[in-house]
């Protein structure tokens, strides 16, 4: 047995994006030991990976480092998380756009990332 965080990371390393769900159907992220607010047990579900950009901020390091962004994404299941949308520009990326998750890599570790839906 492992805790929820390690279980989630193991699943991600095996190509699966999991979420937790409360007994009344609320999606939960990041993984927790018990349902927030009630303390009742949580069950694991496969995430659809679909979501909508809730907010976005472009970060401008001092040149020559290029700008990059972080986005808050509301998953269709209801949970929200921070991530990044691949191949985005400040002009083209906007709140309200539909995105789809994929599992990329950063520093040798699997990392949850998103693409805009029309790019698929």
């Amino acid at each position: 047995m492992t805790g929820p965080e390690e279980l989630w990371r193991d699943a991600l390393a095996n190509g699966r994006f999991l979420l937790q769900r409360t007994d009344d159907g609320q999606a939960v992220f990041p993984p927790r030991a018990v349902a927030p607010g009630s303390g009742t047990p949580l069950e694991w579900i496969e995430a659809s990976g679909r979501g909508t950009i809730y907010s976005v901020s472009w970060i401008y390091p001092r040149p020559p480092a290029p700008p990059y962004h972080v986005a808050l994404i509301t998953l269709d299941e209801g949970a929200r998380l921070m991530s990044r949308v691949l191949d985005a520009t400040p002009e083209a990326l906007a709140i309200g756009q539909r995105v789809k998750a994929f599992i990329g890599e950063s520093d040798g570790a699997p990392l949850l990332l998103f693409r805009r839906e029309q790019e698929e």
Binding site: V56, S57, I59, V70, L81, M82, G96, L111
Partner: peptide
């Protein structure tokens, strides 16, 4: 959960709130 995406601490958190407030 957030750190791998390299938000600046603490400014990016406030920026995300400001961007949504603008929207």
């Amino acid at each position: 959960w957030d750190a791998p995406y390299a938000p600046l601490f603490p400014v990016t958190s406030y920026a995300l709130a400001a961007a949504r407030h603008m929207h």
